[in-house]
Structure formats: structure tokens, C-alpha cells
Design a protein around this nucleic acid. Structure first.
Lengths: 338, 338
DNA sequence: CTTTAGTTTGTAATCGATTTCCTTCTATTT
DNA sequence: AAATAGAAGGAAATCGATTACAAACTAAAG
């Protein structure tokens, strides 16, 4: 059994109310009693029971984080910002690209005040229900739901920059590999990035060739499949921009197997700048996302919305800048470009 | 505000006790009232508040899972087995190889009845304190703590098998790269695996060369550093057995850069059989761990220990079989061996 | 028709922490 | 010395669900 406030009160020879007051800073406690209470707390190693507190205050001060891909920096950002605001974080892992209602039981059962959804693809009907009842912030993955609160990088802008970089290197037939959800629809961030690619191609008057743009399941296998398809085309691309690093890695692997040189024949770029980019052959050009800041900003946004519930009619969109990281896989010399 | 049992009772025109009885199966409720209650529950979309239940029952029916590397199958195994037993799971991410007391606040604050620690390296003093107060099961990573409850693969046996495989291919100077904790000490599973390697070498009368065995931080960078060190030796190894796939990948990458052929000059093997093994060049020989089963078994063990608290003097050790997955990185033809 | 046994239902206590309300005590002013 | 304001601390209500206990009701037996 864990120590309760009653035992602390008994040991310190004060009432439970006084113990609570000492620990919660309502400073109307005499120095003598405060000392006795703190002494007892220390000796008994008392930590207030969160369940009791939650019930009494009718709030959990807990944020649920439902994630499908593990992004350590993002989680750290969320945890740090939440802790700073006196909030707990509980993680829920949702395997697969699409998330269903069962992942949100903790909300409906009163164990969390709201949720942050990093890189989660989710049905619009379910999303509407969640937004209706709880404080929800999405990050990484964006959404077409108009009331959604979103923290993400400026996908369109950075994809446009990446495409310009490829064009500067003389590439003209640029393919993109996005991430699809279960229904075969591309994730919304894929659409934004593709729109950036389209804009860059537009600038030099190249029309979009639909054949060159496809969506796959995230992971190495998806990348391999994409490469196989693109190589099967009568006119092969000379660059492949994958919207996730693991997809790019799978892609490169498949190109190698078929004797296609990277970047000699085809340049490949990824997205996220995960650790593997530096450790694959050739090192992978990618887009660095400020995951830690995205996490922190998501919490800040969450807190803002949560304390301003009545006025939350319109969605709040926060866009952060991403950064191109050029490496050998696109044939450029290893250097950074802002 | 979420619906409470009182509102359901009012709507169904019964007492709260009756609602509770209907929902908790004490079947002494008349058919008529049961129907009314279920109707009201449905209409109000009522879900019992876990906080209230936890407080009243003085148990949370929640297991805390503190993880440092994300193993989706293991988490799925844990969640499935926990759900089947009516338990919730909350995840806590612990960045870095070593875990400190702050990760266990949820236990001390009454939000979980115990914890499962997958692949977590943890100080023995802290571990003893945890075992003393809570139901704890470790999995993946083992422990020298004698009262520890551990679910893991038979590291020594499978490492011995892998080494025999390398010996059969004609390799004689076999290096190992283990995972070190912050204090520079190797993780305990590294020691077990190394012991298996020693045993296999012993069988053919090759003594252990200490120079060939080192520990690094997990991840690609650790593998690259290990390869650099091993190549700097006057007598290079002809095989490198890495105790984590990412380390093996980093290792191979560094070997490639220095013009060392894999497996021509040096064979490389990994551990965990993660997805990347099939998508790296050359495909990586590895050890498949039954992560889903480890997760399930961890929960089963947890439940057993939890309901048998007085008699838990001695640690319970569960060892599962792992499987060699031979691929090109060790020069064998791609095939499976049991 | 009364008694008794058994079943169903409601009332109220309970879990731990917080907080309102009220009492007690101290200090200041007249 | 009496009156009053203000500070400090304790008693008790509260949050939501469960459950011990008591009350009410039904059915069977005498």
C-alpha cells in the first residue's frame, strides 16, 4: 500500500487539510507546522495519489498521445512541455496506418483531458466526434477537417525547395512516393508535399506526369515496391522524392539490386532526416523536421485551446520551418542549405 | 463533461447501485430493469469513469510499460494479453540507455499497479526498490538481480548457434559488438550472448581474444565506431556479430566506406531480425526474437506474480527460443535454419 | 392467512485528495 | 479591558463508482 495523506497528517500531528495546503502552496500555514508536514512527507516518502486528486478536481491534468510511428524527439518535446505545465503524458501505440475509436478509450473513460495525435491518420467522422468532446491537437500529419488544430512543418514550401534543388542538378522527370492510408488515400501531408513539387515544376514549365506519383505503405517494403513500379515505366524518372526516409531506403535498396546507380542514374531524396540517412550508401538527402519543437508547440497549442474552450470554433494552424539536408544521394556535395 | 453513473440511473429510473450491478455482471437484476439500464447506457453513450473505479477498488488494473526502444510487436503482445485480462496499459518512453527513478512516478502516485520493463537497463538499487513495492517483470533485457522476474530469449544458446554457423563458414576470428549502458558496462543480455560465443569457440579450441569484444551505444553510430576500431587492429576479425541490427547496419556501412567487402572479407551478423535486415545491402543475417510472444508471456508472468504476492521470494525466469535467420551478410545462401 | 426464506433494490459508506465553511486563536485598536 | 479584524487550522463535503448493509418485496410452506 502506498502512503496516504492521512498517514502524513497523523505523523505530523495536523489535519489532512493542512498537509494538502502545505503541498499545494496556499501559504496560510505556520512555519512550525509546515516544517512538521514536510518532515513527515520526507520520512514516509509520500507522493500525493493522482487518482484521488483527479477525482476531486474533475480533471486529470493528463494528455493522451496516440502515436503510430515512434519519433523520440517529438515525444521528448511533448513530455518536456507537458511537465513544465504540470501535466502528465500517457502514450498509446496505434499499430498500422489508420487509427480507430478503441485508441481513445482513455478519453471516454476519464483518464485524460485531451489528446495529441502525432502523425496519425484518422477517419474524419471519428475526428469530428473527438474534437467535439475533447481538446485535440494534431501534429506532423495535417488534416482537411476545418476545425482541426494542427502543428506541422510547412510541407508545401519545403517540398518545393527540395524539387528546385533536384531541378538545379539537372533532373527533369521527378517522381514522388507518398504514404497511403488503408483506404488507399494518400496521407494529407503527402498531398501538401506533392503540391509543393507541382509548384516547383510549374516554375520551369514542366507539367505533372501522374504516372510518376504514387502512394505506398510506410516502411522499407513500400519503398522497394515503389522503385519496382517506377523502373517498370517506359520512361523512367531521373529522381525519386520519397516522403519518408524508410521508404527512400527501401527504394535505394531495390534500385541497387537492379543495377541502377544512385545518384548516377536516379537521384533519391527522403523526408524526416532520421539517423539512418547518414549510415546508408549513398548517404541520403532528406528534410530535417524540428520534431522536438513540434512536440513543444503541440503542447503549447493544446494548453491554449484547452483553457479557451468556448472560443475554439476555428482551427489553429501552426507551421514551422523545415530544413533541407543535402547528401550524396542527390549528387550534390555534402553541405547544408537553408 | 462525461456522463456519470448517476445520470444513467436517473434516465433508467433506478438507483446507481443497480446500474453498477448491471454493468458488472452481478446478475441479481430483474430483466425489466436490466433492459432499461442498458437502454440508458446506450443512449447516453455511458462509459464508466476509470478514476472513480480505481479509487474505490484501490487498484488501477493498469500496467505501466517503460520502454527505451520501440518494438511494435512486443507492445502489441503486451496490449493484447493485458486487454484479455481486463488490464489497461500505459506507455512511458525513457530516452537513453539508462532509466532513472523519474520514469516510475506513475507507480508511486498510484496510477499503475506495477510495470513491465522491456529492454530497459536500470540501476540495481532502483530495481530493488521497485521490486520491493510493486509487481515488476522485465523482458528482453535480463538482470543479475536474483529476485527479478524475467522473460527473454535464450541468449546464450542462440548466440552459440550463430557462432557455430560462422565457424562452419570458415570464420575463426569472430568479434562481438555488444550494447553498453551509460556507465560503460555492457547490458546483461550482451554478457549472456558473449558467453554463448565463448562456448562455441571453446568447442573448437579457439581461446577468446579480448581485443575482439567491445560494447557501444545502440544505434548506427555505435556500429560505425565499432567497425572503425576493429579495422584498426593489427589482426582484423573475419566476422563481426553485433547484438543489435542497427549496430550491424552502421558497421556494414563503415566497412563499405573503407572498401572492406561484406561478406567477402568480413561476415556481419545482427540481432532482432528487424525489417531493415531484408533491405540492406547485403541482406543481414540476424536472430529472430518472438517479440509478440515475449510481450504476452511478460503479461502472463506479471499477472501470476501479482496475484501471488506473498510467495514471490524467488525470481521467475521464462526463456523462449529464438531463431537464426541466415542471409547473404554471412555468405550463406538465403535460407532458414532452426 | 401468517410465517419464513429467498430475492431484488435502494441507502449510505468508502477510496484519497482538495476545498468550502466554520471555529479558534492572535493581534491590533479604542 | 473590550471589541474587532484577520490569520490559521480543523471538520466535513465533494468527485464517481463500487459494495456492505438494510429494506422491501415475492414466493413458498405451514
Amino acid at each position: 500500500m502506498l502512503t496516504t495523506i492521512g498517514e502524513v497528517a497523523a505523523k505530523a500531528k495536523v489535519s489532512v487539510a493542512t498537509v494538502s495546503r502545505v503541498l499545494n502552496g496556499s501559504c496560510k500555514v505556520s512555519e512550525e507546522r509546515r516544517r512538521r508536514v514536510l518532515q513527515a512527507v520526507k520520512e514516509l516518502q509520500y507522493e500525493p495519489n493522482l487518482v484521488g486528486r483527479m477525482l476531486r478536481k474533475s480533471e486529470t491534468r493528463t494528455i493522451l498521445v496516440v502515436f503510430s510511428i515512434m519519433l523520440p524527439d517529438l515525444i521528448r518535446g511533448i513530455k518536456d512541455a507537458a511537465a513544465a505545465a504540470g501535466y502528465e503524458v500517457i502514450l498509446q501505440y496505434s499499430p498500422g496506418p489508420d487509427t480507430d475509436a478503441s485508441q481513445f478509450a482513455m478519453l471516454h473513460r476519464g483518464m485524460a483531458d485531451g489528446a495529441i495525435l502525432p502523425e496519425i491518420q484518422i477517419d474524419n467522422t471519428l475526428l469530428a466526434l473527438l474534437y467535439d468532446q475533447f481538446t485535440i491537437v494534431q501534429c506532423g500529419e495535417t488534416t482537411k477537417y476545418p476545425q482541426a488544430h494542427v502543428v506541422a512543418v510547412n510541407n508545401e514550401e519545403i517540398a518545393c525547395q527540395m524539387t528546385r534543388h533536384l531541378i538545379e542538378l539537372g533532373r527533369k522527370r521527378i517522381a514522388t512516393v507518398g504514404i497511403g492510408s488503408c483506404q488507399g488515400r494518400p496521407a494529407y501531408f503527402s498531398r501538401e508535399r506533392r503540391e509543393g513539387v507541382r509548384r516547383a515544376l510549374d516554375e520551369i514549365g514542366i507539367p505533372l506526369d501522374q504516372q510518376l506519383h504514387l502512394d505506398v505503405q510506410m516502411g522499407y517494403r513500400g519503398g522497394a515496391e515503389a522503385a519496382d513500379y517506377l523502373l517498370s515505366l517506359p520512361e523512367r524518372p531521373d529522381a525519386i522524392f520519397c516522403f519518408q526516409d524508410t521508404v527512400a531506403v527501401g527504394c535505394i535498396q531495390s534500385l541497387h539490386r537492379r543495377g541502377v546507380a544512385v545518384p548516377g542514374d536516379i537521384a533519391v531524396a527522403g523526408f524526416d532526416d532520421s539517423e539512418i540517412c547518414q549510415f546508408i550508401d549513398p548517404p541520403l538527402t532528406s528534410v530535417e523536421q524540428p520534431f522536438y519543437e513540434i512536440g513543444r508547440e503541440a503542447v503549447r497549442t493544446w494548453l491554449l485551446i484547452h483553457h479557451d474552450r468556448p472560443n475554439r470554433s476555428i482551427g489553429r494552424q501552426v507551421r514551422l520551418a523545415a530544413r533541407l539536408v543535402i547528401r550524396e544521394s542527390t549528387g550534390g556535395s555534402p553541405s547544408f542549405v537553408d
